[in-house]
Design a protein around this nucleic acid. Structure first.
Lengths: 224, 224
DNA sequence: GTCGTACTTTAGCCCTGTCTAAAATTGTCC
DNA sequence: GGACAATTTTAGACAGGGCTAAAGTACGAC
């Protein structure tokens, strides 16, 4: 099967929203994410339903069918593998790859993506810490604990980011917040929920609660 | 500047035809190469002329403007670099890469292609022996001598192919005709112009005149 | 249960790129 | 120089995807 660029973009959007907010996915949520108008979304939903990629009831939102979910997962696999390629092989920074991968994910060729996967040595996570589905669509769930869920004195390793905007990622770079860093919460300011963190041997840094809610971590048991 | 997929395909087609048959390029030649109808071509030519990518006079064919030629060259650069990537890094055979590269050449990102070029160590020729333009659009002309231009007893190295179809390339593979092989013309059959070739230490092979006219070679001066 | 607001869909239009059928142009052959 | 065949262009239509404006639906507040 082959789908158009627009159809693929819609499938991915529906998948992403369903993943975060659950089903059913509303027309306006899709319009919002895709920077388009609800009326346009409705038009496309009818086409996707026609092709049995989504289940759609007028006025009641949509959910992906098995086929639709499968295709969306493949798109995500492609997107994330290309991001790995751009960062690991071509030396891009993690804040520069999203838009290029948005284009590359539409390239049609099963073989291509399987060979790319092998070439990259079958990575399990992309440069933002998002899990990469395998050829069958299965993937290992990432730790879903946010830095904002932890308390004072707890230690953790940064394993992923929820927000992918380049300004946000550059901000993390400038503060030494890269995937894999080991951090400890020194203090949580009562006024606005900002966090003071210790990163390795550096001076402590201060981040807002809003930033903390964008960071996935794996907790390290505090020894002793 | 940004152009649509269709516009880019037309530019490339015009460039290719101009390269082989010279200017002006006729509407039907374009329709032919692109597997579309002359009427559709006319429509698009008006749009390209509007954008000053081509010079177009009704009923008298077209030629690329400086801007149009520049853009076409960049597309060819992208196409050929991606072919190198697919063959050299991902292990594709030279008969499998054309269609994938057709898609990849439309990816929009200057940086991407420059980094890819560096990653591949700035190749000068693609897997079919076609020259790769540099970032400024300049490229080194390949030897334009065809195997069919040589006479009995002459030696040469295979440096390129004119035809890119996969059946043709597979035929070459099966007969040991890879780029870089050293060959000698043992005999030219008077009846139909077929050639008997010696390849390295192997048994001689017989190829048709039609095949010989698709093979670019660099002649080796016959010593003694 | 009715009302009002927010959300969703429909209707009708636009643009891109394609097509077929018909009209126009070119250029060649006599 | 005229007629005809081949080529090219125009006219009008259609499918994909998007928009605005207007109409329809859902559902919480009362």
């Amino acid at each position: 099967m082959k789908y158009t660029l627009a159809e693929e973009d819609y499938l991915k959007a529906i998948y992403k929203i369903a993943e975060r907010q659950g089903v059913p996915v509303s027309t306006s949520a899709i319009a919002d994410l895709m920077q388009t108008r609800p009326a346009s979304v409705t038009d496309m939903l009818k086409k996707l339903a026609e092709k049995e990629l989504i289940d759609y009831k007028r006025y009641h939102g949509v959910s992906l069918t098995k086929t639709g979910a499968r295709w969306a997962t493949q798109l995500i696999r492609k997107h994330r593998l290309w991001e790995c390629f751009l960062v690991d092989k071509l030396g891009f920074n993690w804040d520069e790859v999203h838009e290029i991968a948005e284009q590359l994910e539409h390239i049609q060729s099963e073989t291509l993506i399987d060979r790319l996967d092998d070439y990259l040595e079958n990575p399990k996570f992309d440069p933002h810490g998002d899990p990469i589905p395998d050829a069958s669509g299965a993937y290992r769930m990432r730790y879903q604990i946010l830095l904002s869920d932890l308390g004072i004195g707890q230690r953790a390793i940064l394993v992923g980011v929820r927000e992918h905007g380049s300004t946000f990622l550059q901000y993390l770079d400038q503060n030494g917040l890269a995937l894999g860093v080991d951090l400890e919460i020194l203090e949580i300011l009562p006024y606005d929920g900002s966090l003071r963190l210790r990163l390795a041997a550096n001076d402590p840094i201060l981040i807002s609660g809003q930033v903390a809610r964008q960071l996935y971590v794996r907790q390290i048991p505090t020894t002793g």
